[in-house]
Each structure stands twice: as structure tokens, then as C-alpha cells.
């Protein structure tokens, strides 16, 4: 529907789908691909009809890291000026839920992309890892930070230092993924979940994401203050009135996102 080169997008009811589409290189993430991805996320973020974003990948693997050839000859000053990771900052400003469905390899930049999503469904054949250390570098798009905040410093260091890959089961045990599924049902189940979230009151969903994201970074006191403000704010919505009215009347609420 849009003229992207490395991804494509689809709309299924209230779910906006973004599909990584460089299967011939296991969806290795080059810079223009990240830019396209962020543009697609922002487009869906602004589209009133889209309630949830589903990120998937075409082919055997989700995303096998960055395009190494692209960066092999780079020097620090060039990288500072290029500021490529600023694109990833834009990703963190997306207000709508982002659900990832991951099969095969999600390593390096691909793993960072997974860590940038809100909910992760993984196929049993999924493998995660940060092999950057084997190239004499380290993750640069938030990998070290987000992994640490998700699983704690000890496990994070083990993964980051060894560069080894971990399977979906282990990722599940460490709380990195929400669900592990046979690959054959991965997309259907992720879509079903996306559609379920899409029926929830959108402003609640939005402010819940906002508050949970803040809770990761702010102190308990600050995030509880923040939570409170968002809680109060939802009382300005029609959906709060409808939700509570429906509860009292013992019927199903009809949410409008207003």
C-alpha cells in the first residue's frame, strides 16, 4: 500500500501490520529499512482507525542483526554525525501497542527490535542473542539497556559477553517473551491477540502503555504520581463513562476511543 522497499504494510480491521521483507538476507536491518519501519510505525500511530500495531517478518527469520557490510568501514565521527540510532528513539515515542511475532533468528539489531516492542510472541524455533561482542563491538540501539531492564544485569551480562544464542523457551523463562508457540500458529495467535487488545478502550490502552513505560525508568514515587494523573485523565473519556455504566447495567460496553 505504500512505496516501501524493505518492508510492507497491511491493515486488518483495527490492526496495522508491518512486515519486514528482506527474507533473502534473513531480514538483516540496514539503515533505510529502519527508517522505513519507523515511518510505518508513525503512520499507523497517527491513523485513527489503527488501534494496535503488529510487527512480523517474512521468511524463516525475524531479523538477523544489522547489515555488517554497511558499517564495516565506519569511523566514530561519521557515526556521531550520522546519528543513526536517533531513528530508534522515534520508535520509543509510538503510543500504540506494538506486538511482535518472532520466528527464527532475532539477533543483534533484530533482538533490539524485539526489545523495542511491547508484547512478544515467539515461535518455538525462535533464537535470540547479541553476537556483537564476536565482532569486537556491542549493541548500539538500546540492546544492553533494554535487556538489562528486562532480565536484570547478571543474565544480561552473560548473554552480552558470550554472544551465545538462546532459544524461545529460555527467553520465556527470563520474561523476554510473552508466549511460545508452534511456528505454524504464530501469526494467527499474534493477530488474535492484537485484535483482542484492539477491542479494548484505546485511551486506556494508550495511557497504560505510557505509564508502564515510565514505571521502568522513574522512581516508584514519581511513577505512582504519574500513574495517578493518567488515572484521573481517563475520567475525561466517554469510554470511562460507557465502561462503568455498562458494568452497572451488567452489559457489554461499547468503546469508541473517545
Amino acid at each position: 500500500m505504500s512505496n516501501y522497499q524493505y518492508i510492507f504494510t497491511e491493515i486488518d480491521d483495527a490492526v496495522g501490520k508491518i512486515i519486514l521483507n528482506r527474507p533473502e538476507v534473513l531480514n538483516a536491518l540496514n539503515r533505510p529499512m529502519i527508517t522505513e519501519l519507523v515511518n510505518a510505525l508513525e503512520t499507523f500511530n497517527k491513523n485513527e482507525n489503527i488501534k494496535v500495531i503488529l510487527l512480523t517478518a517474512n521468511g524463516r527469520s525475524f531479523a538477523a542483526g544489522a547489515d555488517i557490510k554497511e558499517m564495516k568501514e565506519d569511523d566514530p565521527i561519521y557515526l556521531e554525525k550520522l546519528d543513526q540510532f536517533a531513528e530508534w528513539d522515534r520508535m520509543s515515542l509510538i503510543k500504540k501497542p506494538i506486538i511482535a511475532a518472532v520466528q527464527g533468528y532475532a539477533v543483534g539489531g533484530g533482538f533490539e527490535l524485539v526489545l523495542s516492542c511491547d508484547i512478544v510472541f515467539a515461535a518455538e524455533n525462535a533464537k535470540f542473542g547479541f553476537p556483537e561482542v564476536n565482532l569486537g563491538v556491542m549493541p548500539g540501539a538500546g540492546g544492553t539497556v533494554k535487556l538489562t531492564k528486562t532480565i536484570g544485569p547478571r543474565k544480561a551480562l552473560e548473554w552480552l559477553w558470550t554472544g551465545e544464542y538462546f532459544d524461545a523457551k529460555k527467553a520465556y523463562e527470563y520474561g523476554l517473551v510473552n508466549r511460545v508457540l508452534p511456528v505454524e500458529v504464530l501469526f494467527d495467535e499474534a493477530m488474535a491477540f492484537a485484535k483482542k487488545v484492539a477491542t479494548q478502550p484505546p485511551l486506556s490502552i494508550r495511557l497504560i502503555k505510557d505509564t508502564v513505560t515510565k514505571a521502568v525508568d522513574l522512581s516508584t514515587y514519581e511513577s505512582m504520581q504519574y500513574e495517578r494523573k493518567n488515572f484521573y485523565l481517563l475520567f475525561a473519556t466517554d469510554d470511562q463513562k460507557e465502561g462503568m455504566q455498562a458494568f452497572v447495567e451488567k452489559r457489554q460496553p461499547i468503546f469508541k476511543g473517545k
Binding site: L181, P182, E184, V185, D188, E189
Partner: peptide
């Protein structure tokens, strides 16, 4: 849950 997935796959 896994049984249901399996039957879905077999059924396809």
C-alpha cells in the same frame, strides 16, 4: 493449549 494448537495445525 498446546493440544489445541496441534489440532489446528493437523486440521490444516
Amino acid at each position: 493449549e498446546y493440544e489445541a494448537y496441534s489440532q489446528k495445525i493437523a486440521g490444516s
